[in-house]
């Protein structure tokens, strides 16, 4: 008989793995999610800096332990402060 519990009950692994797999599933299923995100990022950032829209890359990466949104945005020029 096991007197002491394991440090990491298997349910926690299930929850973690499920969260990560759903990040991917949901992003893939909603086609256009990354496309929408891309356009809104361009709009937001363009207020402050000129960027190379053609070269802008957005990726959703999920590894075994985390999911991350990675954006690579080449800056062409930073605008002069208004004042």
């Amino acid at each position: 008989m096991k007197l002491f519990r394991e440090e990491f009950p298997s349910k926690k692994q299930a929850v973690e793995r499920l969260r990560l797999v759903l990040v991917h599933d949901r992003a893939q299923v909603s086609t256009g999610l990354l496309e929408l995100l891309r356009e809104e990022i361009i709009t937001a950032i363009s207020k402050y800096v000129d960027i190379d829209e053609e070269e802008l890359e957005i990726e959703l990466n999920a590894t075994e332990s985390k999911a991350e949104l990675v954006a690579n945005i080449p800056v062409v020029r930073v605008r002069r402060p208004l004042e």
């Binding site: 519990r5 394991e6 009950p9 298997s10 349910k11 926690k12 299930a14 929850v15 499920l18």
Partner: peptide, 16 residues
């Protein structure tokens, strides 16, 4: 199994 931490609970699933 929920008590032992070996099964996801209602809260976990609700949350997801």
């Amino acid at each position: 199994m929920v008590r032992k931490g070996d099964m996801m609970d209602v809260d976990d699933i609700n949350d997801i």
